[in-house]
């Protein structure tokens, strides 16, 4: 038991936890991307997928709880190690030269990490909790969510150019984090050597770039007009269906 405590107390042990939690969070990033790319299929695809998740809380909530725990471990390890790392050099070099031979992404993991954290918070408030004030559109995302029309909700959300820009910057920070993190994860876990190590680093950067292109393609396509017709149909359908009780206001009055 005392030995296992070392995973939480020693520097290398916390690097294991950081790498393992980061690796599992990366798997979520891939799965989430694959789910979201269904936007390029007919609207039923992503809507059925979303409905499936909503109808299976026994699946959804353990995954959410697991992600929260992983994020907690990742952030805790990062914060404690960073504080120790800073304390390890109380006096800086003259002119604070950039560390020799270190890539920009590797030197700025804390910056990119904090940026990703802020972006995830906005993303959750925007599309999961659905705080209307954050969406920047007159179309009510909450009303579209009530219709279980995730497709229309995404289209409505990303048609606001500055929201789309924020998402591109957010996933950019994520991929900047992954470009170094994916390779460093194998190093921290001790799963790297001189035979495949250099290829692993190249692969990490390539995967990070692919993830970025995948995520950025969604707001880009929607700004270019993808899904506009469907959104229009849905809005008209909601507005011209008063017989089903009181429909939620799709557009705010002003």
């Amino acid at each position: 038991m005392k030995t296992l405590v070392c995973f939480f107390t020693s520097s290398v042990g916390r690097k294991f936890l950081m790498a393992a939690s980061g690796g599992l969070l990366f798997l979520f990033v891939v799965a989430h991307l694959l789910g979201n790319l269904q936007i390029f299929l007919p609207p039923e695809a992503i809507n059925n997928y979303a409905r499936y998740l909503q109808n299976h809380p026994e699946l959804l909530w353990p995954v959410r709880a697991g992600l929260l725990v992983l994020l907690g471990v990742h952030v805790w390890a990062a914060v404690t190690l960073t504080l120790e790392n800073r304390a390890a050099r109380p006096v800086q070099y003259w002119g604070r030269p950039a560390p020799y031979g270190a890539s920009f992404a590797s030197r700025t993991m804390m910056v990119s990490g904090v940026a990703v954290g802020a972006f995830v918070l906005y993303h959750l408030l925007h599309y999961t909790v659905v705080v209307e004030g954050l969406s920047g559109t007159k179309i009510s995302l909450r009303a579209l969510k009530a219709q279980h029309d995730v497709y229309a909700m995404m289209v409505a959300g990303f048609r606001v150019w500055y929201v789309s820009l924020l998402y591109v910057v957010g996933v950019g920070a994520l991929c900047w984090h992954l470009a170094h993190g994916l390779g460093a994860m194998f190093q921290s876990l001790g799963l790297k050597n001189r035979i495949y190590g250099p290829w692993l680093d190249r692969l990490a950067r390539a995967v990070a770039a692919l993830i970025f292109l995948g995520y950025a393609s969604i707001p880009a396509a929607i700004l270019a007009g993808h899904g506009r017709a469907h959104l229009q149909q849905v809005i008209e359908r909601i507005e011209t269906a008063p017989e089903r009780g009181t429909p939620p206001a799709v557009r705010t009055p002003h």
Binding site: S11, R14, K15, L81, N85, A88, G101, R107, A184
Partner: peptide
């Protein structure tokens, strides 16, 4: 490694400066 931690060195962030 435990002695290294006790001495107050930082941890590796795989920047490659050392190499």
């Amino acid at each position: 490694i435990e002695q290294m931690d006790r001495e107050g060195f930082g941890a590796c962030t795989v920047t490659g400066s050392c190499e």
